[in-house]
């Protein structure tokens, strides 16, 4: 009989190393947080009125739809996939909603209908990706063409929305004090984020999402429902895009088939800057919120600056994307 002794206690050097390694996964999120704080501090130091609470709240108000869309994208990217269709689905949602409302349909019918439409589109893309093993990039590209094409077919012009419910939702302000308020969209987007974060952290579905991103083959051999989960994340992203589209139509009070061009890029950028690994398996929804805030803050600073032109937003976002992708690369390479 072999003498089985308890393994020697982990040497302290190894333990320290492990703590470092463990913290390394938080590096991107912490970097984003630090960036956000620095940017805010720079804003406060340089521009008058930047420290108003409403400046921060406006970032949420102006980006509520992006937050919802990016939340859906976070799920997809965590599995190691990508969803290029989100901007087009937002546009389709606003167009369909505006058209139906214009035709006199009740908001109580239109709202669930457009949400269902986005969800079904997502489901379809997920099914194609899973069953036919088409690359997510291509399947959602087709979805993007399809959604944008249908939207353009329905109406090429901007359609104003005058429905009572829609205008109420658009104009309703939740006030915390004089001049300090948020819109209903902000509440909805935060609820979505909270639910999403809960699902990711505390449900079997959420953990399976991470497992697939870590290694889909392993997940399959561990007996996890890989196919079902993969279809579900694209369905979820479809739903989030549709909901984002509804919020967008609140925000714009209109529907337009050319809305949200390039929103998929903003959503992906927010997710990446928020520290989610593009290869999947690591990151938090909280990080995505930070990512959206960074994008919003860049715009705010450029607006406050006055002399800087709007295109700097894109360049700065590109630079940040580069920095965070290289950072991710360094982090994953070293932890291997």
């Amino acid at each position: 009989m072999i003498d089985v002794t308890a393994p020697p206690g982990t040497p302290p050097a190894k333990a320290r190393n492990r703590v470092l390694k463990q913290n390394r996964r938080h590096v991107p999120v912490l970097a984003t947080l630090a960036l956000l704080i620095i940017m805010y501090a720079v804003g406060v130091a340089n521009y008058r009125g930047f420290s108003d609470t409403q400046v921060v709240l406006n970032i949420f108000v102006d980006n509520a739809f992006l937050l919802v869309v990016a939340a859906g994208m976070t799920f997809v990217i965590l599995t190691g996939g990508i969803d290029l269709s989100v901007g087009a689905v937002v546009a389709l949602t606003t167009t369909v909603a505006a058209t139906l409302l214009h035709a006199g349909w009740s908001a109580a019918v239109v709202l669930p209908l457009v949400l269902l439409m986005g969800t079904v589109l997502g489901l379809g893309m997920g099914a194609v990706i899973h069953f036919f093993q088409v690359e997510p990039f291509i399947a959602t590209l087709a979805g993007m063409f399809l959604a944008r094409g249908i939207a353009l077919l329905i109406n090429r012009n901007s359609i104003p929305i005058t429905d009572g419910f829609w205008t109420a939702m658009a104009e309703e302000r939740i006030r915390f004090g004089p001049g300090v308020f948020i819109s209903t969209s902000v509440v909805i987007s935060l609820v979505v984020v909270l639910i999403g974060a809960y699902v990711l952290a505390y449900t079997r579905f959420g953990r399976t999402v991470y497992a697939i991103g870590g290694s889909a083959d392993s997940a399959l051999l561990m007996g996890l429902p890989v196919g079902r989960t993969r279809i579900a994340v694209y369905t979820l992203s479809g739903f989030c895009s549709a909901l984002g589209g509804v919020l967008y139509s609140f925000y714009m009070s209109s529907g337009y088939s050319l809305n949200a061009q390039g929103m998929e890029l903003d959503a992906i950028a927010a997710v990446v800057i928020g520290g989610v690994l593009l290869t999947g398996g690591s990151g938090y929804l909280f990080g995505t919120v930070l990512g959206v805030l960074v994008l919003g803050l860049i715009q705010t600073i450029i607006t406050f600056q006055g002399t800087l032109s709007s295109w700097w937003t894109r360049i700065v976002v590109g630079v940040l994307l580069f920095a965070f992708i290289v950072l991710q690369r360094a982090v994953t390479r070293r932890s291997r």
Binding site: T203, R204, S215
Partner: peptide, 24 residues
């Protein structure tokens, strides 16, 4: 064949996590 991005505990239990009302 495990998911190295997940915690040790999860790798042992994922798919069979102890849950109450769906909450892990």
């Amino acid at each position: 064949n495990l998911c190295t991005n997940l915690s040790v505990a999860e790798n042992i239990f994922i798919g069979r996590e102890p849950r109450s009302l769906g909450r892990i």
